[in-house]
Design a protein around this nucleic acid. Structure first.
Lengths: 141, 141
DNA sequence: GGACATCTACTACATTTGTAGTAGTATCCA
DNA sequence: TGGATACTACTACAAATGTAGTAGATGTCC
């Protein structure tokens, strides 16, 4: 089965966040602005040293992933990436790298291999139907 | 919209191939066994020095991603990963990292954001229906 | 059988990533 | 007001990654 290719993107979104950076971003999207101390709490599963997290945040600031605002002695961090956009970039990256540009292969793969539950399939069908209607609406103008 | 969580995998498949390693693997799955020289041809878009590719291959061999068989002066490489499995691991990794374990979010994201063509939607629906039947068959035993 | 091409093995090196320590400074509580 | 705490800025360092050079072994063609 083949769904076809994704058109080559103009600007392939420079620099994906690293693994650890995703963890920080996920925490930040959940709660922000947040101090490093708060984030460390949200990321307690990682068992990072406080300074480890600080280093991450410093670097992410340089990369433009987050920004910090100093209030008194404490820096308050906010994400500069929109979650959806970052996710989209990550998905695109995966499709390019792993599925050689064939977005449909990823979909097929998900449906075939991820053992969706009946409920998930149902929802997915509904989503497709919704997209269908959306498209039709757009087409009518 | 939410589809639910993926169960935490027992062994989270150690070490994903790196970006460059995926390129090599994709070439190898396309054609193997292949010599470094042949692979360099398949990967001409990368404009790698021959020795760069060789280094990649050496490392991938250490990691158990490929194996080499020496015939005469030349090493012939074969992938040791099965493509589907590697893809699955990569998708799982993405879901964990980017969608915090919610496989359904990825699906929703794809359907919503990737602007599937009508044809793609149709195929996907068919895939779902197929999975549906499959599931029913399994259920009947 | 020697000159030339080709391969492999080994080494090199900058960058990124994960992980944290240290030192200096700002805060706060008794 | 001075000591304990907390926070920031800077430094460190190993492993992984991307990229390639060099040298020595091997094969090939006249």
């Amino acid at each position: 089965m083949s769904f076809g290719q994704v058109p080559p993107s103009a600007n392939p979104d420079p620099a994906q966040p690293s693994d650890a950076e995703w963890k920080v971003l996920n925490a930040l999207w959940r709660r922000h602005p947040a101090s490093a101390r708060e984030l460390l709490g949200l990321l307690s599963a990682e068992r990072w040293a406080y300074t480890t997290l600080k280093t991450m945040l410093d670097r992410m600031q340089e990369k433009g992933f987050v920004r910090a605002e100093r209030r008194g002695n404490v820096s308050w961090y906010e994400p500069l990436l929109e979650r959806k956009r970052a996710q989209r970039a990550a998905v695109r990256d995966l499709i390019a790298r792993v599925f050689e540009g064939a977005a449909g292969s990823l979909l097929t793969h998900l449906v075939d291999d991820e053992r969706l539950s009946a409920a998930q399939r149902k929802r997915l069908s509904a989503e497709i139907a919704r997209a269908e209607r959306e498209e039709a609406r757009r087409a009518r103008g």
